[in-house]
Design a protein around this nucleic acid. Structure first.
Length: 465
RNA sequence: GGCGGCAUAGCCAAGUUGGUAAGGCAGAGGCCUGCAAAGCCUCCAUUCCCCGGUUCGAGUCCGGGUGCCGCCUCCA
C-alpha cells in the first residue's frame, strides 16, 4: 500500500510520489522567534517530525527545511518594547526553540535558514516579480498585484470576490495603502517605528514582507518545485496562498505538490489566549514537573488534521501510558531464559503500525498496534515462556518504531541516591525477618519521597513516580 | 455574509472502497503478591448528535436539522 497524504490542494487523500524517486524535499513553516513556542506551535512541529521520520522509515531520503522568521512586525514591536536589538532578541528565542525541540525529541531538519540571512535573495526574487509585472510600488513599499495571478485562492479554495475584507476584525486599515486590500507587501519601506531594523538594498531602505522569505528560502534549498509543504491550518490563508502566488508568478512552475496542514490545539476545550492564561510553553509544563516526553505523547497522539484538545488529565494519561512502555522495556531487558519468540506478533505489529502511518499518518492506529503487541508479549512473559532472543527482537522492534514516533524510547536511568538504596536494603532485611509492618512503613516512606518500590523476580526495584 | 472542520463509552481517540464498534486513561471483579506495584484475564457504547432516506445490511452513502470550533491579510 502506498503512502497517502491528505493534500489541501485537492482536499483528498492522494498517493504520495515524490518528484525524484526515493527522495523527498519538504519545507515546513518554522517559528517566529520573538517568544517561547507554545504547545500549539509545538504540536505542529511534532506532526512535521512524525512526517519526516515516517518518510525516512519508508526508505526515503528526506531533505527537510524549516525557516526561522527573525524579522517581522511582532519581533520589531518586541524590540521596541524591550529595547533589545533584533539580533540578540531573536538569538535568545532561537536557542530556546532548539532546546524545546531537543527536550521533545524532535529530529533536526537538514536546514534552518533565517530570514535575515537571506535578504539579498529576497531582493532578487522581488526584482524578478517586478520584471514580470506582478508588482507595484507605493511610497517605497512594493506590493504583489494579485490581479496578475488569477489562480490565487486554489489552496484555500476561497473565492476572492466573496472574501469579506476585514471580517476577522484584525485589519488595521491604515496599514494597507494598497490599490486593492487583498494585495500584500513584498517589501516594506523604512518607517521610524522600525528603529534600527532595516536594510539598504536596491529596492531602497526597508525590510522584507513576511511571505517572501518562505518562497525565497524554500526555493533556494529545495528548488523551484518541491514535494511537501507543511504548516498550521491558520497559515493556509493567506500565508501559503501568498507563497504560491510569489513563487509561481516568478518561476512559472508549480511550487509545491503536496500541502499538509495541521489543525489547531485547544486547552481544556478553550482556545488558547492571553486573557485565559492558558497559553502554555514546554518550559511551563516542565516547571510543573511534567515529563517532556509525556508532552510529546499528548501532542502527537491525535491525528494531525483533527482539532485536538490538550488537558492536564490527558497529560497524566500520557504519562501513565509512557510508563507502561518503559516498564515493558525494562521487563524485556530482564528476560534471560529459553522459550518462544514473538516472530509473528512482531511481524503483525510492524505491518499494522506501518499501514496505519502510511494512511495519512494515522498515529492512533499505529499506537493501537503497538499495544496489541505489548499485551501479547506481556502474556508470554507472564507464562515465563519468552526467550531471550525473542525479547531482544521485541526490543529491536520498539527501537524501530521509536525511530518513527519517538514514543517508545528506553527510560532514562534514574540515579538512585544512596539514602534510598539504604532504605531499600533495610526493607529487604525487615522482610526477611518477616517484619512486614516495618517493611511497609519503609515503602510508604519511599513513596512520600517520590519513589515507587516494586518486588520483582529479580529483587526489589525502585523508580521515580 | 463566505469557506472549511468536527460531533463515537466518564475522559482521550481509531474506524479503507457500507457487513455488524480498535487502542490508551479512569472504573469494577479476579489471578499473582506477606501486602503492594507491575503484568495478565473478565466486565465497562444493542450503539456511534438528532430526524428521515437508500440498502439484505450504515458510525460509514444521500437529504434535512442541531451543536461546537476554525479561517476570511500577516496567530502553528
Amino acid at each position: 500500500m502506498p503512502i497517502r497524504f491528505f493534500n489541501t490542494l485537492s482536499r483528498t487523500k492522494e498517493p504520495f510520489e515524490p518528484m525524484e524517486p526515493g527522495k523527498v524535499r519538504m519545507y515546513t513553516c518554522g517559528p517566529t522567534v520573538y517568544n517561547y513556542a507554545h504547545i500549539g506551535n509545538l504540536r505542529t512541529f511534532l506532526f512535521e517530525d512524525l512526517l519526516r521520520r515516517h518518510l525516512k522509515y519508508r526508505g526515503f531520503d528526506v531533505y527537510h527545511v524549516m525557516n526561522l522568521t527573525d524579522v517581522e512586525d511582532k519581533i520589531i514591536r518586541a524590540c521596541k518594547e524591550t529595547g533589545e536589538p533584533l539580533k540578540s532578541l531573536t538569538a535568545k528565542y532561537v536557542d530556546a526553540f532548539f532546546e524545546d525541540l531537543d527536550a521533545l525529541g524532535v529530529e533536526r531538519a537538514e536546514e534552518y535558514p533565517a530570514a535575515t540571512d537571506h535578504i539579498p535573495e529576497m531582493v532578487e526574487l522581488i526584482k524578478t516579480l517586478r520584471d514580470r509585472g506582478h508588482t507595484y510600488e507605493i511610497d517605497g513599499s512594493i506590493y504583489f498585484k494579485l490581479s496578475t495571478f488569477p489562480q490565487y485562492g486554489a489552496l484555500s479554495h476561497f473565492d476572492m470576490d466573496q472574501l469579506q475584507s476585514g471580517a476577522s476584525g484584525r485589519v488595521d486599515s491604515d496599514e494597507y495603502a494598497t490599490e486593492d486590500a487583498r494585495d500584500f507587501a513584498l517589501w516594506k519601506a523604512y518607517d521610524e517605528d522600525d528603529g534600527a531594523v532595516f536594510w539598504e538594498t536596491e529596492l531602497g531602505k526597508g525590510r522584507p514582507g513576511w511571505h517572501i522569505e518562505c518562497s525565497c528560502m524554500s526555493m533556494k534549498y529545495l528548488g523551484e518545485s518541491f514535494d511537501i509543504h507543511c504548516g498550521g491550518i491558520d497559515n493556509m490563508f493567506p500565508h501559503h496562498e501568498n507563497e504560491i502566488a510569489q513563487s509561481e508568478a516568478a518561476t512559472g512552475k508549480q511550487f509545491v505538490r503536496y500541502w499538509l496542514h495541521s489543525a489547531h490545539l485547544s486547552v481544556e476545550n478553550k482556545k488558547m489566549s492571553k486573557s485565559l492564561g492558558n497559553i502554555y510553553t514546554l518550559r511551563d509544563l516542565v516547571a510543573m514537573g511534567h515529563d517532556p516526553l509525556a508532552v510529546r505523547w499528548a501532542l502527537i497522539s491525535t491525528h494531525y488534521k483533527q482539532p485536538s484538545n490538550f488537558t492536564f488529565e490527558g497529560l497524566e494519561a500520557a504519562k501513565v501510558t509512557l510508563n507502561r512502555i518503559r516498564d515493558f522495556r525494562i521487563r524485556l531487558e530482564g528476560i534471560r531464559g529459553e522459550g518462544s519468540d514473538l516472530a509473528e506478533a512482531i511481524e503483525t505489529c510492524e505491518r499494522e503500525f506501518g499501514d496505519a502511518l502510511d494512511d495519512d499518518l494515522n498515529i492512533s492506529g499505529a499506537i493501537a498496534a503497538v499495544f496489541e503487541f505489548v499485551r501479547e508479549a506481556n502474556r508470554l512473559m507472564d507464562k515465563d515462556d519468552l526467550s531471550q532472543e525473542g525479547a531482544r527482537q521485541a526490543l529491536a522492534l520498539l527501537d524501530r518504531l521509536n525511530a518513527v514516533t519517538g514514543l517508545f524510547s528506553p527510560p532514562l536511568v534514574d540515579e538512585v541516591p544512596q539514602s534510598i538504596l539504604d532504605l531499600v536494603q533495610e526493607r529487604q532485611d525487615a522482610r526477611r525477618a518477616k517484619d512486614f509492618a516495618r517493611a511497609d512503613a519503609i515503602r510508604e516512606q519511599l513513596t512520600s519521597e517520590g519513589w515507587v518500590l516494586e518486588d520483582t523476580a529479580d529483587g526489589p526495584r525502585v523508580k521515580r513516580t
